[in-house]
Write a protein that binds this DNA or RNA. Sequence first.
DNA 1: TTGATCTGCAAAAACGATTTAGCATCTGAT
DNA 2: ATCAGATGCTAAATCGTTTTTGCAGATCAA
Lengths: 394, 394
Amino acid sequence: MLRSLRRFLKIANSNPPAVERRADLASTIFSGNGADGTFEPVGKTKPTKKPRGRATVRGIAASAGVSIGAVSSVLNNRHVERRIAPETVEKIRAAAAGLGYLPNISAKRLRSGGKNNVVLALVTSFEAPIPLVNHFIIALRSAMAAGKFPHAEGAFSVMIEMFPAGRLHELPGLLSGDHFNAAILLNTTAEDDAFLNRSALPYPVVLVNRLIAGYAAVVEAPETGSRAAEILIRAKRRRLAVIHGSPLTQTTRARVNGFMHRGAELLGQPAHEIKSATLSESAGYDAMRAFLRRGPEIDGLYAVSDALALGAYRALKEHGLKIPQDVAVVGVGDYEISPFFDPPLTSVGVSHQALAEEASRLLLLQLGGVGAARPTVTVPLAETLRASSGHRLS
Amino acid sequence: MLRSLRRFLKIANSNPPAVERRADLASTIFSGNGADGTFEPVGKTKPTKKPRGRATVRGIAASAGVSIGAVSSVLNNRHVERRIAPETVEKIRAAAAGLGYLPNISAKRLRSGGKNNVVLALVTSFEAPIPLVNHFIIALRSAMAAGKFPHAEGAFSVMIEMFPAGRLHELPGLLSGDHFNAAILLNTTAEDDAFLNRSALPYPVVLVNRLIAGYAAVVEAPETGSRAAEILIRAKRRRLAVIHGSPLTQTTRARVNGFMHRGAELLGQPAHEIKSATLSESAGYDAMRAFLRRGPEIDGLYAVSDALALGAYRALKEHGLKIPQDVAVVGVGDYEISPFFDPPLTSVGVSHQALAEEASRLLLLQLGGVGAARPTVTVPLAETLRASSGHRLS
DNA sequence: TTGATCTGCAAAAACGATTTAGCATCTGAT
DNA sequence: ATCAGATGCTAAATCGTTTTTGCAGATCAA
């Protein structure tokens, strides 16, 4: 898809620098991909490590016939104050370029350690609804910035780790604990959860919307589905339906079940179940349209994600149905812009922000001590009545 | 806002583990915040480093009166195969807990180095429209996973760094280069750009929507504003307006200027300029409503962000105006769901995905070598005609 | 010629962790 | 009483880098 796009790209080298700059740095990052890294020890250097793996200062030193100190000085552009001869500088630069040198960040940080960094990770699956991740980034950064974790005086970094669904266990550093000091885990699958259940991770962890023994967790309140049913029924709707993606995740399953149970309980009849291929707007549109064409009449709809609600909106309108007069709709509030739907979407659910803030709080709590406490926090529902459910005209 | 929320949180400790797990790990992460880290050297240990800064294995060793090897063994739960006596294990655990020990990730990674990691950073300002970041995360991960950068055999990590607008220069590791091997810079302000202009960063960098001499960059095509004007005029609109946020960023300023110039050129009369307080939907709504009440009649609207377009939608509808019959609207396509607006939003702009993919490509290109090339890539416009501009009914 | 100063670099000491090799001491068997 | 093995730990090497110290040789002044 992008391939065809690229043919139109205009590529141009940028103009030469306008200001004085250390332009020679550019050549530091260079890989002559013909060089294979073989070299003979020049002079009486150390016991001659063979250059396995990535190039290091040692490799460059050997290749250029100088000491590693000289290499480091040159690569950090300290060669003038360290009095390295110009031709030596060139030799070293050439060697670095030839070997495709990339500095080892861990080593750099260890050495020039200064502030000792706390590394926080957000671990999520590739397949996940990523927008959630944003809230966690912001929440983590805000919590740290607000000094919620005094141990690290503002010195910390946030990493994003992603794994293919079901293969969390293959994530490097997950079990060894040498990639981060703490992690928030999002969007795991049943397989991943099983893995987590039988392993103990050697650092503080917070799970999101998963309950697994031994881990701290943040989950949405379990009544979200039943509350949605109640809202629709309060709005005098009797013929209900729920639209959801397939397969159901742990979270959406709970929403659907809660809705079905409470609906049946209050109305004495089951709600329709509309299965969408995915959680996307267009899948929701397709599923809703197919359902409407099949004939069943409904007057109340619960969408387990706002994306599905948006897709359903279009199908309903195309079918000549008015929201909320003909069909009232309730979503879950996972789109920031649901107040700007037409009509604005009523939702009952937990805000991503609250979820993220609680998760950050729990993580820093564990990091900061408070013993072996691994609390589970249920984030309460926020019920926002808007026009789509016929409650008011906001 | 969340404070009042928290009062409702139900906090409960999770149940004891169902499976065999190394529950004792929990106590490793513990901070007796009364302990101040003072201790006397026990036995004849090393020259007694004083415990400045964070606790280390050495500090724990001194505090517990054992060697650092023993400490390491215990903290990694190797105490059984390393034959550490149970009471020593306890002593060490207690010391670690008392000192609030957090392992130094850099040191761990350096030592247990295996795969040598490439560290990529996404640097963005706090104030920025974060959704963009997602695309870059995905694009970077995909590019690396697709083997676009063979040097790192899948071993890499992505960090998110954030800075307060205008204070990029204070970001730790930015100048020293000891936090990442390469970076993509997003959402910089004029101040930040000035800083970049006078500094050379010692690693590959790609700027997004900024052109600064000496840096590789990905920018959106400059004609986005003029094309928007053309689309509206093709749809027979004559009384145009543009809605934008204030202050204008480098990117939105270009859009507004292009639109104004091209509009004036083709119509002989200037377009109205509607200034919204921010780029949010509600600010767009407020600004649009105020404008409509003031009286000027328009039949074509260009919104420099889809959020503004969505806010304007509501104001237009409330004012009794039909889209596109009374007012045609063109946005920029930065919301994924703009096809599901009512009516679907026509947009002309660059896709975030294309922007992100190009940026990743440029970054890996520089990382992988290809000399000092610092290309500038202009991502071409994608023009998507939908119902909001009255072109067709898709 | 003789110090004194400058040049250009090598060697070594960190940074904080893990792991391997090895040294005592104790236990039990002969 | 002695030896083999087990037990419990320490010391040292190592990861890749930066920085400090210092040592030769060249240059200069007297």
